[in-house]
Amino acid sequence: MTKLLHIDSSVLGPHSVSRQVTAAIVDRLRQATPGVEIVYRDLSASPLAHLSGAQLAAAQGAPNPDPTVQQELATSSAVLAEFLAADIVVLGAPMYNFTIPSQLKAWIDRILVAGKTFKYGAQGPEGLAGDKRVIVAISRGGFYGPGSPAEALEHLESYLRGVFGFIGVTKLEFISADGIQIGPEHREKALAGALQAATQLHAA
């Protein structure tokens, strides 16, 4: 059975463009992949704690009786397990201040784990998550493409390409809605284009 992990990170709830696009992507894949099993995690509604020194030490075996730290470790293990089990990951990633939301960064810190999603060998780091298909719905208020005046401030798609490339993902797809803060007409056009692209995704 195909397993799909659906992640949203926008704090805007029903007003979020990225949430609308991830929902359309998941709906398309649900129709195209009979019996797909879907796990959903909302990083805004249930945010992960940012990494702490106590968490890292406990994860490496240091004794820590603090129940809060123990709960955070259990949550981290669950998040990693969800990612490892998924055949497909659908990720909503709006641009906040030129990069990803901090809620999404906390999730990424749980899935980039040495020995689990990458390892260090004689030739340097090697990704271990190359069997996954990752589809990212990104939304940006302006335009940050090659040659645009704001190109140097684009640290959303470029960062995510680096992250997933580092852990070995080669089946990486992006659906973009750009210019959504320029005006209502731009927003409507960008959203319509992204939703249309979602309906044209090939099956798993």
Rank of each mutant, 00 (worst) to 15 (best):
T2E: 06
L5G: 13
H6V: 03
S10R: 11
L12Y: 13
L12C: 09
P14Y: 02
P14V: 06
H15Y: 12
S18A: 08
S18I: 04
Q20Y: 07
V21T: 10
V21R: 08
A23E: 12
V26W: 08
V26H: 01
D27G: 10
L29P: 11
R30F: 07
R30Q: 15
R30W: 07
G35E: 07
E37W: 04
V39H: 15
Y40M: 11
R41I: 00
L43W: 02
S44T: 03
A45R: 10
L48S: 03
L48E: 03
L51N: 06
G53C: 02
A54V: 02
L56V: 07
A57V: 01
N64M: 08
V69G: 09
Q70N: 11
Q70K: 15
E72Y: 05
L73H: 08
T75S: 07
A78N: 06
V79Q: 00
L80S: 00
A81F: 02
E82I: 00
A86L: 06
D87E: 10
V89E: 02
G92P: 03
A93G: 08
Y96D: 00
Y96E: 00
N97F: 00
F98T: 01
F98W: 11
Q103C: 12
A106P: 06
A106F: 08
L112A: 13
L112W: 09
A114N: 12
A114L: 09
K119N: 05
Y120H: 14
Q123S: 14
G124I: 05
G124H: 07
E126K: 12
G127I: 06
G127Y: 09
L128R: 11
A129R: 02
G130I: 05
K132I: 06
K132L: 09
I135M: 04
I135Y: 04
V136H: 02
A137R: 09
A137M: 10
I138L: 15
S139V: 09
R140V: 07
F143E: 14
G145A: 01
P146L: 04
E151M: 08
A152R: 09
A152L: 02
E154T: 11
H155P: 03
E157N: 06
R161W: 04
R161E: 14
F164Y: 10
G168A: 05
F174K: 12
F174H: 12
I175M: 08
S176G: 13
D178S: 15
D178I: 05
I180F: 06
I180Y: 10
G183D: 10
H186P: 02
R187W: 00
R187A: 00
E188N: 01
L191I: 14
A192R: 14
L195W: 07
L195C: 07
T199E: 13
Q200Y: 06
A203N: 12
